[in-house]
Nucleic acid binder design. Structure first.
Lengths: 117, 117
DNA sequence: GTAACCAGTATCCAATGGATACCTTCGGCC
DNA sequence: GGCCGAAGGTATCCATTGGATACTGGTTAC
């Protein structure tokens, strides 16, 4: 059923809130080709600050979407990698990003005409 | 291409930020069966406050995802309805909500074990 | 005259997001 | 031996957003 997503107490809603987060979406996209280091992610994802990226990665790791692997090296190296569960998120996320790319012109046109009208 | 979603200036990213909003997702779900009034939406979507719902609906209307139709009646009646563009969002959103429902157990299990461990 | 209906505002406070600076450890350079 | 830089974060502070609650306005039914 889909009605339970409307209930704030429902686990489905909790999951939805998490994966609906914009940074989480971009992290999944960044990791689709394999593991990445913290700095790589920070540089890839434009506009994210280290604090928020850390929060996002920790939360996603807690939810089993990715793993955090610390190498005992100097300078430190930490690699993030999607788990199978995280990989399975790619299909739905692609559906959304594909929609965004296909319809961005319509949306922006509507937004523009609202501003001027 | 998908790389441009990483650029905060990119329109695709702007669109992604909007449709990634949790309330927008729930509004689309609420409107999938036809037009709904403000109060119906507020009652259907658990936990939303009128201020935030108004903001969400206005923003979605500005982006061409739904229409706002005011009837000159007393008491006032306002109906919100998905545009064809908004309708086209249903498929990707279903992909995400379906994922959430299918994997909610895994996610919650991971979250629990993180808390205790 | 007063209560109810609906679709919101108005007001206020808490939480979140974001910008910037700083910390740590070690190796290499001068 | 002192200094700099690397990576992966914290710490601190402020702006923006989100959320809770109360209230408005026109009309009609009681």
């Amino acid at each position: 059923m889909d009605g339970d997503a409307f209930n704030p107490e429902c686990p489905t809603r909790l999951v939805l809130d998490r994966i609906g987060d914009k940074w989480s979406v971009l992290v999944v996209l960044s990791l689709r080709k394999g593991p990445r280091r913290f700095t790589e992610l920070r540089d890839t994802i434009g506009g994210v600050t280290p604090k928020v990226l850390t929060q996002t990665l920790r939360a996603m790791a807690a939810d089993g979407l990715l793993t955090r692997h610390v190498f005992a090296e100097v300078p430190p190296r930490v690699e993030y990698e999607l788990t199978p569960l995280g990989q399975s998120l790619q299909a739905p996320i692609r559906a959304v990003t594909d929609w965004a790319e296909q319809h961005v012109n319509e949306v922006m046109a509507a937004r523009e005409s609202t501003l001027s009208g």
